[in-house]
Write a protein that binds this DNA or RNA. Sequence first.
DNA 1: TCTAGCACTCTTCTTGCTAGAGTGCCAGCA
DNA 2: TGCTGGCACTCTAGCAAGAAGAGTGCTAGA
Lengths: 360, 360
Amino acid sequence: MNVELSDRQQAILGFVVREYIRTAQPVGSKTVVERANLNVSSATIRNEMAFLEDMDLLTHPHTSAGRVPKEAGYRYFVERLMEKSDLPEAEQRLIRHQFHQARLDMEQWMKLAAAVLAHTTGAASVVTLPHTTNCRVKHIELIGLSEGLTLIVLVLQQGLVKQQLVRTASPFPTQEQLNQMANKLNAYFEGLDRVEIINRPAELTMWESRVREVIVEMMERVDGRSASEIYRDGVLHILRQPEFAEAEAIRQVIEILEERSLLERITAEIRTSRGVQVIIGGEGRWQEISDVSLVLSPYGVAGRGAGVMGVVGPMRMPYGRAISAVRFMAGLMSHLLEDVYYGSEGYSEGHTEEIEHEQS
Amino acid sequence: MNVELSDRQQAILGFVVREYIRTAQPVGSKTVVERANLNVSSATIRNEMAFLEDMDLLTHPHTSAGRVPKEAGYRYFVERLMEKSDLPEAEQRLIRHQFHQARLDMEQWMKLAAAVLAHTTGAASVVTLPHTTNCRVKHIELIGLSEGLTLIVLVLQQGLVKQQLVRTASPFPTQEQLNQMANKLNAYFEGLDRVEIINRPAELTMWESRVREVIVEMMERVDGRSASEIYRDGVLHILRQPEFAEAEAIRQVIEILEERSLLERITAEIRTSRGVQVIIGGEGRWQEISDVSLVLSPYGVAGRGAGVMGVVGPMRMPYGRAISAVRFMAGLMSHLLEDVYYGSEGYSEGHTEEIEHEQS
DNA sequence: TCTAGCACTCTTCTTGCTAGAGTGCCAGCA
DNA sequence: TGCTGGCACTCTAGCAAGAAGAGTGCTAGA
């Protein structure tokens, strides 16, 4: 990437990438002469192209085919040649409007975000639930469903609600007794995180400490989950692309979208980064996805809860549009979360700086 | 299906279907003579096959190819020729064990059910959440998250928990006040269903009736949702089948699995039926899925909450195994739900007969 | 440094051919 | 009447060869 290209070489590379993204056909020197206004002959173009090929930016599928960008070519394009625009104002307004129409509901937002990304980029999208690292108890409720079966409802700060059924031992408690237990547990544990609950000395009956145990397990699941829920959309879009005429290529994409482990390894890395990240054809690090590109961004509130969202498509992807869409959506989502879930709560310790969404 | 076939014709049809399911290759008369022990010549087989073709049970892709079953052929096979066995005892034990190891948690069970179905049949699986038609309030909780933002936690009978954030108007209520409101609402509405809540006369402040409104909306969503959550698994299995070498064929399957509307139309029909249903190549009713088969079954407790589960695969599907797996899983799941979610609660009205899982 | 032009390479499409698989049908036999 | 052996026929798959077209690389010359 430290190569210096002449202006003309950059123009040619840019043209080839754009044209190939548009048509999915290898681009020949003749096309370049005709459609890029460079006022040189095709022979010159050919020389330049040969040079770009030496630089590993382009390649050609066979001797008499036009040029096709390689990974490094896409990368050069994305980093140096592409115009970095924002999503058009009109589209931004439309999307904001959709979110304001929606309920105040995380799940709803996730689905909407996935749908919007898929729709505006024409590719498949993934959105992971924000990941909180250190959840705290807000409220505990015990509800007897039937003899022998009790429902624990655990409300966490940030409004996350978790539930868990447990069996009750033989002298079945009445709802009255359950309420008293809940009060006791709330008095002990409200505002504490998982470790603090474990260490907090408390006089508990056997059954109460069993409930405490379950609550700690529930909190462990919340804290530890890498990306418990993954929202997807637009898988069908991607299958319409010509590069996915082969079953094998489709398998790769479906694998990314379905295999949690792969997606988790990737998002784990993205979550801690800042700004929109573009992964082109695996970039050597992820061999499983050699033919697809990802445009991903963390979102959420730093130190409080961060998720990842982005789009998955062929290497031949409209990067400009994808990047601006992902950047905008991640920013919007961060704002919404800041306002609704993390906003103005009495956390005075800890900064609540939003995750950054500017391109560096 | 009212055609009468001779024993020999049945034997040939059965052999062709089984062989084609096994190998994915058209079956020629020679193969039949060699491998089915019928003691007749290939010419006889050919005559019989020509007859079966007239009956629309078989076809051949081109003049000099072997025979391949048609939809009606598969159907005849499934209904009259296939041995109807149960899942082997050992496998049943293993699966039961997995469920007993799991948490008492609907979501967990759904995922497990999808995984088990996908694994035992080698095809893709779908499981929809049980659908309750007439949910009733068990408990209402109001939790202030911050000034201006309140979380409504609604526990329904059967232990379903729903949450919804609402904005609070300017004189912000304290948690104390919220608790009082919740008590009041519980006193009014506990045990009532949606319609009863609307009709119940109650003296409410403006804000309280706003909460009532939201609760009714939440209950509407629970009641009205056709199949809010759909759990899937094993999509990658299905892509390994030779019939899905073509992108177009893959699109069909992905479409079934991703397009809610199609799946909902199908499950709506299945939910009200009884026993395992086999849909072969769309059966004329669902043209979108002309090349795939579904083996589906309702599960749950009749009149209380019913869902649909099953597998999706190519027409060339191991029906015997799929049917027994789906039947077993639906039965198991119904039992679990009966025990845990609907069991021994004080419903004395209304029968709680389990949905039937025997093949008729 | 650029360009014109030519030889060369490789794909794609078409055609023709052959081997192989499997059918349909008919005449003859039990 | 039902079964069988045999033969002609049809269609596919695979290979080879040839023609057209696209695009390249290279070199000589401006």
